[in-house]
């Protein structure tokens, strides 16, 4: 049976594997979107579309 420690280890491995398929630009976009969602989590209808688009445009030129 899996212990909670196993669960945490598997989660960390899963994260590493999933993120390893991304380019550096894509990794940075992923971090940014989560950061923006976190900052706006209290809003009922958060709209991070514009800052996210600007960020991606800066990252990929």
């Amino acid at each position: 049976m899996n212990t909670w420690e196993d669960v945490k280890r598997k989660k960390a491995e899963m994260r590493t594997a999933a993120v390893s398929t991304l380019t550096e630009n894509e990794k940075s976009i992923l971090m940014k979107v989560l950061e923006l969602e976190w900052e706006n989590r209290h809003l009922k209808t958060p709209d991070i579309r514009r800052p996210l688009r600007t960020y991606i445009a800066q990252e990929i030129q």
Partner: peptide, 8 residues
């Protein structure tokens, strides 16, 4: 890039 992040 956006699509790849969504997939991940």
């Amino acid at each position: 890039a956006t699509e790849n992040v969504v997939k991940t």
